[in-house]
Write a protein that binds this DNA or RNA. Structure first.
Length: 350
DNA sequence: AACTCGGGGTG
DNA sequence: CACCCAGAGTT
């Protein structure tokens, strides 16, 4: 695909196929900003009713800034990612206090506001103020990767930098707003992640991916190695000033090091949720009784700590360096993972 | 650099 | 059901 024609072609497609959305008929930075914050990680279908309710209730940034955080959060409920709502409110207040109620008009200045990162700053700067700066979101990654055959990883710092550079080479100073909207809309409606309709595409003969049949291979993402989870239920016994510890198996993680007595359970679908449920507490109680039977000689000890931890490793637990604590859930007073780590490093009994 | 946020969609 | 999505902020 010749880079000289890309912008004109995709904008031409956009004018014929774009959806009618309320924030596309305004240059009011407040409305543009609000829509962009709502649409982060959110589909248009889901975000639209929220946008309409917000505009109705808070027609101006002043109105939003005057509201309480509780009120804003209540309006936001159901959308998820609630720090977006907190930052939304915080940002509105900053626009009032630091910018006299007017959103700054440059990419760099917009980025200083809470909740506004590279993408949102570029969106506001181009849609509201026609600054020539390219938006780079998931749609842009996909469209550029396929059409121009870019095989760099979209989720590495270098890849993101490269895509941003290419996107900014393609954008034109005459219509940065339409160009940005066009690329994203093309990605959202036509150059979709799964089963794109390449046979009906305006770029069919010039698109790298279409010609080489690599639509499913592009864009390239770094595949995080799947980390396997193991569920350890720890019990810490104490008598006087001594704590009971156990030397670990040489063939397992932390081979030969000491840790507390534990019971390993196969699997819980979502331990973070189970922790609050009776079913989990029951399993925990079962595990505790098993320990009591198995270690009769320590019955005179008192169980002072009980916890379960999940550990995750992406290399079949062969290498200690690849193991990290994934989460620790508090059941009663419990040793923090750092405490456990220190024992392991010290490799001795207290 | 890797994790977290949280809904919804998908295989 | 597990897995994926994808910007911004945090560590």
């Amino acid at each position: 695909m010749d880079k000289r024609y890309f912008s004109d072609k995709v904008v031409e497609w956009y004018e014929l196929n774009k959806r009618d959305l309320p924030w596309r008929t305004t240059r009011d930075p407040y409305k543009i900003w609000l829509s962009e914050i709502i649409l982060q990680q959110t589909r248009v279908i889901q975000g639209l009713p929220y946008y309409l309710r917000f505009i109705e209730k808070f027609p101006t940034v002043q109105a939003l800034a005057s509201a309480s955080e509780q009120e804003v959060l209540r309006m936001w409920q159901g959308l998820g990612y609630y720090t977006r709502a907190r930052n939304l409110h915080k940002c509105a207040k900053e626009v009032i206090s630091k910018y006299r109620g007017v959103f700054p008009d440059t990419f760099e200045e917009l980025k200083k506001l809470p909740g506004i990162g590279d993408y949102t700053a570029a969106a506001i700067a181009s849609f509201s103020y026609q600054e020539k700066v390219a938006v780079v979101d998931g749609n842009v990654f996909r469209v550029l990767a396929r059409i121009f055959g870019i095989e760099k990883e979209t989720n590495s710092p270098e890849g993101k930098k490269y895509f941003t550079q290419v996107a900014n080479e393609l954008i034109k100073k005459e219509n940065p707003d339409a160009h940005n909207q066009a690329v994203m809309e093309f990605g959202a409606l036509h150059c979709v992640p799964v089963n794109p309709a390449c046979s009906e595409c305006i770029f069919q003969t010039t698109c790298f991916a279409s010609q080489k049949n690599l639509q499913t291979q592009l864009p390239v993402k770094v595949k995080a190695k799947a980390a396997r989870a193991r569920y350890f239920y720890y019990f810490v016994f104490q008598k006087g000033k001594s704590m009971l510890m156990k030397k670990r198996d040489q063939k397992d993680i932390w081979h030969g090091l000491y840790d507390f007595h534990l019971i390993e359970k196969n699997k819980f679908k979502n331990p973070a949720k189970l922790i609050a449920e009776d079913v989990h507490l029951k399993k925990f109680a079962d595990a505790a009784s098993v320990v009591s039977k198995k270690y009769k000689h320590v019955l005179s000890h008192q169980i002072i700590h009980a916890t379960f931890i999940i550990i995750k490793s992406n290399s079949a637990f062969q290498d200690d360096k690849n193991l990290k604590f994934y989460s620790v859930k508090k059941i009663s007073e419990l040793p923090k993972p750092v405490l456990i780590s220190r024992f392991l490093e010290d490799n001795h009994l207290l």
